[in-house]
Design a protein around this nucleic acid. Structure first.
Lengths: 233, 233
DNA sequence: CGAAACTTTGAGTCGGATCAAAGTCTGTGG
DNA sequence: CCACAGACTTTGATCCGACTCAAAGTTTCG
C-alpha cells in the first residue's frame, strides 16, 4: 500500500552511500508538517521510524490521503523528477527520518545508474499503488475498501517485520483511514464496528488483529487486473 | 488528464529515432483489445490517432478506467519497469498506433540517457494524473467530478491542437466516462443533463462545448495542493 | 484531574445506485 | 435507400449506502 521503498533492494554498500548523502537523522513529533505544499526544492525524505502520509487538501477543507509512508519508505521522488505539484507530507506518529537535499538527489540521479534505476522502480510502484487506490475508491463499497486496506497494511507491515500472527499496529486515527478511503469517520467507524461484531477483526488500543483473513479477502476481492475478455456484469 | 506523452519534448531527431524503433503503424477498430491483462512482455505502445484507455476489472464486473490515452500518448512504461500488473488497454475509437517490442524498449532504457529521462518524466506525470483522479473520486461530488474532467479534457485536447473555441470531440461513451469517474451511467447522464439545462455545456453529436468554463471551473475547484496550514472544514 | 482529541452511537437525510422502460442513434444488409 | 438490430442515451420511480448533525463515551496527555 504505502510509498516507495527506495532502500530495500540495494546492496549494503549502496544503502550506506544513500544514507551518507542524507543529512543526519531528524525527529519530529506527531502531526508535524514534514513537507509543506508548494515547498520549493523540497527534499527527498526517508522514513526511519514512525508513520507519515502524503495528502491533498481541497478548497472546501476535504482531505484525500494519497499514500502512506512506513519505516523504510522514501517520499518525494515524483517531486524530484517533475517539480510540479508538491503535496504536503505529515507525520501520523512521532517519526525519525533523514533528508537528502534536492540538488544532491538530482546529482545522484544523473550520475548513479543504480540510483536512477531504483528511483524508476519506486516511482512505478507508487503509481501502481495509486491506481489500486483509484480502483478501490471508484468501484468498491465501504466494506470492501476497509477489508482491502486492512489486509494490505498487514501484508506490508509483515514484510517489514512490523507485524506478526495476524496482528499489527495501526498508527492512524480513524480520521486518517477515512480520508484515505474516501469515507467519513462516522461511516468508517460503523464498518469497523460491523467487522468486530462479525468477528472478522478485533481492535485493542491501536493493535488490529485479523481474526478471519480469508473472509476479509473474500470481501475485498483485490482490484487485480483479471479477465481480459469479460465486458461487464 | 491522459497518459504519458513520451514523444512531446524530444528533438525531432530523437522522435524519429523512437519512431524508427517502433514497428510499422498498426490499425485497430473501435473497442479492440490493444493490450490484454497479464500479457507477457507487453510492448510499449504509442497512439498516433484515436482514443484508448487503460482499465482494471473487478471480479464483480465493475470497471475502473485508470487513464486515457490521446493521440501522442505512450502506454506501458510502468509495465516496462516493473513487470508487475499489466492492465488491459482498449481502443475507444478506431486507432492508429505503433508498438515497440519490450526488449527494444528495455535496451533503449538502458542505453539512451534521453530516453530514460523521458520515461521518468512520463511516469511521474502519470502518477500525478492518478493522484488527481484519486482526489477527485475520493472527495468530490458527481458534479464536481464531471466539471473537472470536462475542463481537463478540453485543456489537454487544446494543447494538442484537437480542440478550439471551447469545443472538443468527446470520443467516449457515457459508460466510459462513468467508469472513469466512478459513477453510474444513469447518474452521469443526469449530471450532464443538469449542466445542459443550466447552460454550462452543450452537446452535439460527440462534440462538447463549454458554454461557461468559468462556472465549471468554480464548480470543480481543481484538486490542487493548496494551503499548507488548514486542517479541515 | 481536566481538557482536548478521538471513538462510538443514534436519528434523519440525501446523493447516487438500481431497476425498468422508452427514445435515439448507428451501422448493416437487403 | 430503407428497415431493422444492437448499442447508447434519456427519463421515471424507488431504494439504500453513506453522509450529516448531534451528543455521549472514552482515551490521551499535560
Amino acid at each position: 500500500m504505502p510509498g516507495s521503498a527506495l532502500l530495500k533492494p540495494l546492496t549494503a554498500e549502496q544503502a550506506r552511500a544513500v544514507l551518507n548523502l542524507h543529512g543526519p537523522q531528524l525527529r519530529s513529533s506527531k502531526d508535524a508538517q514534514l513537507i509543506r505544499a508548494r515547498d520549493p526544492a523540497s527534499p527527498l525524505l526517508t522514513l526511519i521510524s514512525g508513520w507519515a502520509f502524503r495528502y491533498s487538501l481541497l478548497p472546501n477543507g476535504k482531505r484525500q490521503i494519497l499514500s502512506l509512508a512506513l519505516p523504510g519508505d522514501t517520499i518525494g521522488l515524483d517531486t524530484l523528477l517533475t517539480g510540479a505539484p508538491v503535496y504536503p507530507v505529515q507525520s501520523a506518529t512521532a517519526v525519525v527520518y533523514c533528508v537528502m537535499r534536492q540538488d544532491q538527489a538530482c546529482e545522484l540521479l544523473r550520475e548513479a545508474d543504480w540510483f536512477r534505476e531504483q528511483a524508476l522502480n519506486a516511482l512505478a510502484r507508487d503509481r501502481i499503488q495509486a491506481e489500486a487506490a483509484l480502483t478501490r475508491i471508484g468501484q468498491c463499497t465501504a466494506e470492501e475498501r476497509v477489508a482491502a486496506v486492512l489486509l494490505d497494511l498487514y501484508k506490508d507491515l509483515s514484510k517489514r517485520g512490523l507485524a506478526a500472527s495476524n496482528t499489527f499496529p495501526l498508527e492512524l486515527t480513524q480520521q486518517h483511514l477515512a480520508d484515505w478511503l474516501g469515507l467519513t469517520v462516522v461511516h468508517l467507524n460503523r464498518v469497523l464496528g460491523r467487522f468486530k461484531s462479525r468477528r472478522l477483526i478485533s481492535m485493542d488500543r491501536n493493535q488490529i488483529t485479523l481474526l478471519d483473513p480469508a473472509a476479509l479477502a473474500c470481501l475485498s476481492f483485490a482490484p487485480v487486473p483479471s479477465e481480459p475478455t469479460a465486458v461487464r456484469g
